[in-house]
Design a protein around this nucleic acid. Structure first.
Lengths: 193, 193
DNA sequence: CCAATTCTGGACTAGCAAGTCCAAAATACT
DNA sequence: AGTATTTTGGACTTGCTAGTCCAGAATTGG
């Protein structure tokens, strides 16, 4: 598909608008008519830019949101080279999700797009990158002699990923953020031991 | 509503059948017609036993599944009084979710029932009970002098809950179980430190 | 045994949402 | 300018699904 400048602008507007709606108070199930209303577009445009229909649109939005997840943790995530840096990262993660509250754009998205291959792909890629950053941080700490060599960077990273995911999920379903804090503190403390 | 023996049997059959369908290969969105087909019932029966319609039915099934989550971890969960017991519990949790694989009845349920108050209630109650058991285990280990007193039973329990939730979620979306194992190992190891 | 209640089956309704289609407007290309 | 291409609007179709309704069968209780 060849897009003119105007075309690309419209396509972007659709994705941004849909993403914004997911961040709003009551996303529920997002219908194409919702997207139409928010982005001031027509059905024709929606299918013109996303021939695969709703699923293709949702996946595009999901990718967009997945990118945000990592950029929101920068620059902390890329420079986990001291205990202070780990604490700042921890605080950034907690602050981000505290602000977001029970709303989780990516979360609502994934429940709507279900278990399609495309969705799994996006999540896998996100987790892999995220874990890679953490593992890299652990590795640097180990080389600096700040973390004992018994700790596997990959396993530590996997544990952090699981902990954060779970903490956020608990936040989503119960509104409580202490689980997220507790698991981050415990895991960082474990690195320090 | 007054139920005869036959009535109660039918009601139970509906819940069991729906639960089984959620454990099957492709739950997707469960429609009332799905439930009808599986349980050999009619629309009339569905609304007779669940006047609140689909939501009431889903919540009943969710409660049924939530109960299973805890009973599946017994007797380990109630007797976390030695390191061996903690390991056995860890293995039981991993085994259970490994067997379950990417299917998570309660998980699919919650995504379908969405963010209604009833759903939040069920999850909160489950997490509270679950966390209570773990906290109690930590407390006993502390009293036996096996865990240092710097560890808060409540925070440790919250960390475990978050870790397990996240591990299961990663398993659901990527099929990998190593995150669950890593976070459990890290948290138990942290208790031991 | 009879009346009241509960249980069951299934046709029917209403509404919503994804996706199709086409013609007209805008824009690009040469 | 004139033709080709892209963009846009919106009516229309199609299919699905929750929920309604009611009549008849089965069961209960006195």
């Amino acid at each position: 598909m060849v897009l003119t400048t105007k075309g690309r602008a419209t396509r972007d507007r659709i994705i941004e608008g849909a993403a914004e709606h997911l961040r709003s108070a009551e996303p529920g199930d997002m219908t194409l008519d919702d997207v139409r209303a928010i982005t001031a577009t027509s059905k024709g445009q929606l299918f013109h830019y996303f021939p695969g229909g709703k699923e293709e649109l949702l996946l595009a939005v999901a990718q967009h949101e997945a990118d945000r997840v990592l950029t929101d943790q920068q620059p902390h995530l890329a420079t986990l080279t001291s205990w202070g840096a780990w604490e700042r990262w921890r605080d950034a993660v907690v602050a981000r999700y505290r602000a977001q509250g029970a709303l989780c754009p990516l979360g609502s998205l994934m429940t709507q797009v279900g278990t399609t291959p495309g969705a799994a792909e996006i999540v896998s890629a996100l987790l892999a990158q995220w874990g890679g950053h953490i593992a890299s941080g652990v590795r640097q700490m180990r080389q600096a002699g700040l973390v004992r060599s018994g700790i596997s960077p990959e396993q530590a990273a996997a544990a952090f990923i699981a902990g954060i995911q779970g903490g956020v999920q608990v936040l989503r379903s119960t509104g409580r953020i202490d689980h997220l804090e507790a698991v981050l503190d415990a895991l960082i403390d474990h690195l320090r031991s």
